[in-house]
Design a protein around this nucleic acid. Sequence first.
DNA 1: CATCTGACCTAGT
DNA 2: AACTAGGCCAGAT
Length: 118
Amino acid sequence: MATLSKPSADQFRNDVYAITRLIPVGRVSSYGSIASSIGAKGAARRVGWVLNGSFSVVPAIPAHRVVNRLGLLTGRVHFPENMPMEELLRAEGVAVEQNRVVNFEELHWDPMVECEIE
DNA sequence: CATCTGACCTAGT
DNA sequence: AACTAGGCCAGAT
């Protein structure tokens, strides 16, 4: 659809979606890493805001694989009640304990480091 | 129209 | 090492 959004914002959203879809199953990423990888370092907040609108997007965006830099499931409250973040992660083999990803350091998938994009 | 908040992070003191 | 402040930008009040 021809959105009235600014081009830069549109591209930002597009990039966030693209990166998020690249997160392998069983791995997790973080807002800051994603923001950094798309050249928007420090704009981690925007990433979360963009992901908030990813629920009605197809193909589905694995937004549940994105947590904050401490491995905390900060965005769990924004997920549908029938599809909790925790549940989705566990279904992919990611252990979650107390709203926190277990072995986050090992499971953390950084787009810039793992794939060396750009 | 002004101000604050928000799925956050980095940098400076 | 702990705390504060600033930045990002769009939506909500």
